[in-house]
Design a protein around this nucleic acid. Sequence first.
DNA 1: ATTATTGTATTAACCGCTTGGTACAATAAT
DNA 2: ATTATTGTACCAAGCGGTTAATACAATAAT
Lengths: 120, 120
Amino acid sequence: MPWNLDSDRPIFVQIVEHLQYDIVSGVYAPGQKLPSVRDLAAVASVNPNTMQRALSELERDGYMHSERTSGRFITEDTHMIDELKTRLATAQINEFLPRMERLGLTKEEILNLVEQSIKE
Amino acid sequence: MPWNLDSDRPIFVQIVEHLQYDIVSGVYAPGQKLPSVRDLAAVASVNPNTMQRALSELERDGYMHSERTSGRFITEDTHMIDELKTRLATAQINEFLPRMERLGLTKEEILNLVEQSIKE
DNA sequence: ATTATTGTATTAACCGCTTGGTACAATAAT
DNA sequence: ATTATTGTACCAAGCGGTTAATACAATAAT
């Protein structure tokens, strides 16, 4: 899964989101050890400082914790991960629907578009 | 309709999008005169330079044109506006669906969520 | 004719993000 | 014991976006 970082938004924010999706979708399992800051930075083609900043945010929010010198680990609180999943999904819906309506599409048109696009 | 500008992305980009939505949804009709740069900037609580930059982009793409001292006008090319609408809607879909799937939701779950959320 | 308004251009300053470079303490690996 | 790896911290430089302040020419409004 590429990182798909663009220059429109702060990179560290995009990394936070990317890793949140990785946690929710199970790319990193609960309790699993993460690659080192330097390795993650290399994979993402980003400066280690930038990766560090993203990881600090995720740590501050409790999605991971660092063990000084042995590495960094995903939380084992599966309930918290489930909540994150719900929160991210809801956020997507709440961005998507109002924008589609603001474009002048009716609820039916939106539903049809989604239904159509989801098949292929 | 508030402008809802956040600090995550360049303001001028968000203004471009906001005005595109206004054009597509008919807030500004084809051929209609826009408020002055300074007025728009005041309404959006933004520096005139920033508003000017957004308007220049929209002008470069042909969605409006300025008449030196009499003001700035929305294009009368309704076909172009329709295309913009389609393009924006498609872009929303193409962002929304992959993200929902990446969260681990099945196509059915996504459809149900949309269907559910659209009713209320 | 005079005044106000229009779009436009320019410059300096500030701020946040990013990078590159360096460094350190703690501990795992050898 | 020595070495490598870990997270972490710091600083300087560069860059893009934003603001503020001015200015100008063209023309609409008076």
